[in-house]
Design a protein around this nucleic acid. Structure first.
Lengths: 255, 255
DNA sequence: AACCAGTGTTCGCATATATGAACAAGACTT
DNA sequence: AAGTCTTGTTCATATATGCGAACACTGGTT
């Protein structure tokens, strides 16, 4: 009854084309035909034809000898456009600016994709200018406040069989996670206490723009700085930010 | 003898798959099957099968009715990885930080791709925090200092038949551009005087990491602030930054 | 110098895809 | 409310692709 992976194949070479791009995206580096074949399992000759096609089109690049492949520049352009074209991200823009200003901390906007959260927008805190999380990065949902706030909004959240451990505080037990999600629902916001990155805590709330919620916002704080009072402050500001985004979205849909 | 567009077809459905992604990336928005078919020219039924496949895989999304298509989240991840996996961008990181600090202006790192420059990394100036140019953005080479510095490094630069006008100062004449590239070679750095964006001037130099050069760095300055003295200052800093990147690259290749 | 992995590349046939036309389903007109 | 567009969906067959095995290279080893 697992409907995720072994779904209907569709157009085979299209599937393989994006599987290739996905492979390069995840691994990031240069790979020989044989390595790719071992990883993806498709026949060599099929991959060979696909890779040559993609190289020709600039979606894959080769080293000077032509035997090592990596992702090409054409692929870069595609990613940026997802965010540009997304109405929700665009709408949340100003509110995120406001939230970053109000909290003085790092602010993230993320979206649930299967078992993971994908970061779509962020604002670095005043303290560390280079954000740890890069836009486009994919992180397991169960280890982040963004992810937990989104999972908590689903009656029966879909979880990976193996809850990958990120730090010593990551919740890796299914029952413990379900209990945690219940607490998130009661409390109204999710908290990640160094469950994804050592020394970093996050507070997150889901945006109720669709049912179940798909997008969420969070504030990241150095663990040392997050006491109960600070948590209350931040969650209050997060709820305010959520109101503003949901309000703006409402008026976008009903002009 | 035009070897750019009508090249060997390769795997047809792979070509169409990336053509679809490219289409969504450029246009950014939601499109019906018919609109896509009109734009790309492929048969409807072929596109239909491809789109369904891509939707299934998360590379394309549909609106609730299932008839309007847009780029999907999976595509986002691919883009980010191009930059992560690129050794040159990684290496240039610190030098760009230094250059941004030394000049106090917006700094860009770009790469030539056919007729365009693709921005791979940038540092916002102290003055306007939100950079005008987004990573992954594609801009005609002939209208930017980055592009001109790179074109000047090729004995016979390949130019688009029609040099697209960006502002009233854009060089749109082939002979004028060739003369300008000659000046760039003599001078050692390229200048864009509001040729791409009104009110913005850029100074750029090509990085000689391969022949012909593929990567370049530039500094953007509000037009009002760029007098001769400032230009000399900035070009000197750029040349220093170039030295440092080339030096680092040399030691990366010959450890 | 010949051998021997380990790879990348090509080839002929079985299979999957692309095609244009026919069909279905809405949306708008009259 | 029927008719007429327009657009999405399905279908049968010509065509392109995927497959495994054979071939060609390359670098390293004996």
């Amino acid at each position: 009854m697992d409907a995720t992976e072994p779904a209907a194949p569709g157009v085979k070479s299209a599937t393989r084309t994006v599987a290739l791009l996905d492979f390069f995206a995840r691994q990031g580096g240069m790979y020989s035909l044989t390595e790719i074949q071992q990883e993806l399992g498709y026949p060599k000759s099929s991959l060979y034809a696909l890779l040559r096609t993609l190289v020709q089109l600039g979606w894959v690049e080769t080293d000077p000898t032509g035997t090592l492949y990596r992702i090409g520049m054409r692929a870069l352009l595609v990613g940026a456009s997802y965010i540009d074209g997304d109405p929700v991200v665009g709408m949340a823009h100003e509110v995120l600016d406001w939230l970053a200003e109000a909290t003085g901390e790092t602010v993230h906007f993320g979206r649930l994709d299967d078992y993971d959260v994908v970061y779509l927008s962020s604002r670095p805190s005043r303290h560390n200018l280079r954000p740890v999380i890069r836009v486009g990065r994919r992180v397991p949902a169960h280890s982040t406040s963004l992810g937990k706030s989104l999972l908590a909004d689903r009656p029966d959240p879909v979880l990976r069989a193996e809850l990958e451990r990120q730090t010593e505080h990551t919740i890796t037990d299914h029952d413990a996670l379900r209990a945690e999600l219940r607490r998130v629902r009661e409390r109204g916001h999710a908290i990640d206490r160094e469950e994804n990155t050592p020394g970093v805590c996050c507070v997150g709330v889901a945006l109720r723009l669709q049912r179940p919620a798909r997008d969420a916002i969070s504030v990241s704080v150095p663990a040392i700085r997050l006491d109960d009072a600070r948590e209350r402050e931040i969650s209050a500001l997060l709820l305010q930010a959520r109101e503003r985004i949901e309000y703006a979205a409402y008026h976008l849909i009903h002009p």
